[in-house]
């Protein structure tokens, strides 16, 4: 009984996180400018990281948490690099 409750709440949370990812992808595609896309990419990897954490709870393995940790590390580096690129000021998009 209690395992079923947890199973379905985790499934619902995963659906919500997947919808959140769709919302950020919409903003990545729509833009309108480069900085909007980068903010959305940042949110997208955060959502993916959270989705993996929920997967980790569901299957009870540490592997998902290691992946989540690496995503949060690399995502930060990537976003900072992109922001720095914008600061340098390319004019034509």
């Amino acid at each position: 009984m209690s395992a079923a409750i947890l199973f379905w709440t985790l499934a619902a949370a995963q659906v919500m996180l997947a919808l959140a990812m769709i919302a950020t992808i919409y903003r990545v595609i729509k833009g309108p400018r480069a900085q909007d896309r980068i903010v959305s990419l940042d949110a997208l990897y955060l959502n993916a990281m959270l989705l993996l954490v929920v997967f980790g709870i569901r299957y009870g393995t540490a592997v998902y948490f290691e992946v989540a940790l690496i995503i949060s590390l690399l995502g930060f580096v990537g976003t900072v690099a992109l922001a720095k690129f914008l600061m340098r000021g390319e004019v034509i998009e």
Partner: peptide, 17 residues
Amino acid sequence: CVLAGAFLTLVGSIGLA
């Protein structure tokens, strides 16, 4: 806990859109 967190994240992403 997990539902509340997922819901807030979803609201944030909807706000982004």
